[in-house]
Amino acid sequence: MKVAYWPGCVSRGFTPELHGSMAQVAPLLDIELIELDRAACCGAGVIAEHNQELADTLNARTFALAQRTDGELMMNICSTCQGAQTECQERLDANTEYREQVNGNLTDEGLHYERGLTNKNFLWLLVEDIGLDALKAKVRQPLSNLKVGPFYGCYIVRPAERLGLDEEHPRDRYLHWVIEALGGTVIDYAGVYKCCGFPIITMNKEASLKQAGRHLGDAIDAEADCLVVPCPLCHLNLDLQQPVASKVVGRELGMPVLHLPQLVGLALGLSPKELGMNKHIVRPTSVIDWSTTVVAGAAA
């Protein structure tokens, strides 16, 4: 399938391995990515906090650019983008007069957002459009014996109504389902739906990293080999900042944190290095060991 692809900012900044791994995984899943390279930052909630109309206009512009492509829908790889964009879209779709006011800001560029865009995180697309059976069929290296803790974070599950979580779309179970479909073992721990703390890292570093450190510690206590996240901002606090978080909570951590496309890529037969795991701050030793054993086992 062809999708209008919004990689967000951080996947092209401090987590380049996310953008890179998505590019590796997409062809294996028959996803054609049409990158929205002219689009601007979603605002991550901060621009909306500053000026709602500005955030709504920037995202309406992104949506309009997506609608100009021949993609079936728009796809992102960042929960924060998903949450911030869905919030803007909710307002734009709710009120014609407001939508046209925002569209008025885009006339110089000849852009116009038409109500009702479908914008999905890669996680949702995996489950709802590709389907778990199709995903299973593509697995070349099942994640057998790999114990994976899902870390949903906030923006992709809350508020539930706005993000379309309902009986038909239990999107707060999708990470669980994907881990299982890839052959891995789901580890439930206290932090599955908690906040990584990233949004307040410059305002209250201690409270921010206490959140990250606590969830990582809980995952260790539950004996997870690694965590998987659908959001690069969570990755910043859980991986890049993990050594500092370790000091804040006063315990050894060393928990590898994978981006969702990396976990999928592993099961589809790519190596940790091809998926950019060498760029992580916390060496994903458990994952590399697992991968080495599996590959060696398969070769024997």
Partner: peptide, 30 residues
């Protein structure tokens, strides 16, 4: 630069148009 910021509070304004919600999330793009 606008002299007055504009905010739409859906709690107050309600959904003038039919909500799209999860339906839009699961259906194809227009």
């Amino acid at each position: 630069g606008k002299p007055k910021r504009y905010e739409l509070n859906l709690y107050v304004s309600g959904y003038e148009d039919e909500p799209t919600g999860s339906e839009s999330a699961s259906e194809g793009q227009s």
